[in-house]
Every structure is written in C-alpha cells, then in structure tokens.
Amino acid sequence: MTEYKLVVVGAGGVGKSALTIQLIQNHFVDEYDPTIEDSYRKQVVIDGETCLLDILDTAGQEEYSAMRDQYMRTGEGFLCVFAINNTKSFEDIHHYREQIKRVKDSEDVPMVLVGNKCDLPSRTVDTKQAQDLARSYGIPFIETSAKTRQGVDDAFYTLVREIRKHKEKMSKDGKKKKKKSKTKCVIM
C-alpha cells in the first residue's frame, strides 16, 4: 500500500485542523484551538488504489514558523489553505509557496490551493482571484467548507493525484537520464 505524506499549511484560523478532522473523523470542530502540530493517518481508496494518507496539520501562528522547514522537508505534497473571508490569509499563500519551493529546492512541488469556509456569506476573496492565482502557479484550486464537508475529500484526493503525477514524471525523467548515460565512448 502506497503511503502519501501530505502537509496542510496556511495562516492561523483558516480551518486547516477543521478540514483535516472532517476528512479523518467526519465531524466539524467549530471551536478554535490553535494547533502546534498534529499528525493523522487514514486509509482510503483513490482511483481504485488503496493508500495510506499521513497528514500533518501544522501551526499557522507566526511564533511556530521555525518548525516549518522541518515538516516541509518531509512532506510530499501540500494543501495551501486560505479562508475566503480573510484576504490576508490569501496573500500569505505566496509566502508559504515560496518557502516550500526553497526548502524542497524545487520549482515543481505537488500543491493544491484550497479556499476554505465557502459556506460563509462574508467572502472577501473572489473565486476568480483564487483561480487566477492557482493557474499562475500551475496547481489545482478547490473551494471547501469544513463545516458542510463540501470539497473536503476532493481537496485531499486531488493532492494525492498531483503527487502521483509528480512521481510518474520524475521516474520518466530518471529513465531518460539513465538511457543517456548508457551511451559509451570508444577510443581507438
């Protein structure tokens, strides 16, 4: 069974824990209790493949930012979460993405942009803004509501699919490099 290491990042209060708990335990946590770091595991079937999701729910508070490099190193894919009623959390996505790329030393890291709290009427981040940002990053965008469960499975499952595509691409690139290195030079 394939294991996928997913990391949920975003500013404090955007609903990272609520999304994760909704996926794992099928219930909505409405009281806000700032996370330092929590880890969850769940076995699911995605596109006919049974897999184990190892999900790291991270601290959004700035005082825990020193811990970010460590979990970013171990993560295979990242859910970059903002709240649709919090423009600052949307603007912060850029910083999370840049930090992930720096730590992973790669421009090509599996990510999904997630606009959470889409059940709320007080939207300050337009869907088109988020779609445009995701398009500019070359990553999928999904709106979710941890409260109603809308888009929750889709967000995590899409990230797994992005990781699969990335692994497939990397193995193809690896095979191309191996083929090239088999060419021999004969000096007579």
Rank of each mutant, 00 (worst) to 15 (best):
T2D: 10
T2K: 14
K5L: 01
L6V: 08
L6R: 01
L6N: 00
V7D: 00
V8Y: 01
V8P: 00
V9C: 10
G10T: 00
A11S: 05
G12K: 03
V14W: 00
G15D: 00
S17M: 00
A18R: 06
A18E: 09
A18T: 07
T20F: 08
Q22Y: 02
I24Y: 08
I24W: 07
Q25F: 03
N26A: 09
H27L: 11
E31P: 10
Y32N: 11
E37W: 05
R41M: 09
V44G: 09
V44M: 03
D47Y: 03
D47A: 05
G48P: 04
G48C: 01
G48E: 08
T50Q: 03
T50N: 09
T50D: 08
C51T: 08
L52D: 13
L53N: 02
D54Q: 12
L56H: 14
D57E: 12
E62Q: 07
Y64S: 14
Y64Q: 14
A66F: 04
M67P: 12
D69S: 04
Y71Q: 14
M72K: 05
M72Q: 06
M72P: 09
R73E: 14
G77E: 00
L79W: 00
V81N: 03
A83R: 03
N86P: 00
N86W: 02
K88F: 02
S89A: 07
F90H: 07
F90P: 12
F90D: 01
I93E: 01
I93Y: 02
Y96I: 15
R97H: 06
R102D: 02
K104Q: 10
D108K: 03
M111Y: 01
V114P: 00
N116Q: 14
C118F: 09
C118Q: 05
C118T: 08
L120V: 07
L120A: 12
L120Y: 05
L120H: 09
S122N: 09
V125R: 09
V125W: 10
V125L: 12
T127G: 11
Q129L: 12
D132S: 09
R135S: 10
R135Y: 02
S136M: 08
S136C: 09
P140S: 15
I142Y: 10
I142M: 13
E143S: 14
T144A: 04
T144E: 08
A146L: 07
R149H: 14
G151P: 02
F156Q: 01
Y157M: 15
T158H: 05
L159T: 01
V160W: 03
R164Y: 04
K165S: 07
H166S: 09
H166E: 05
K169S: 06
M170D: 10
D173T: 08
G174E: 07
K175P: 15
K177E: 15
K177R: 09
S181F: 02
S181M: 10
S181N: 14
K184N: 15
K184S: 11
C185W: 02
C185F: 03
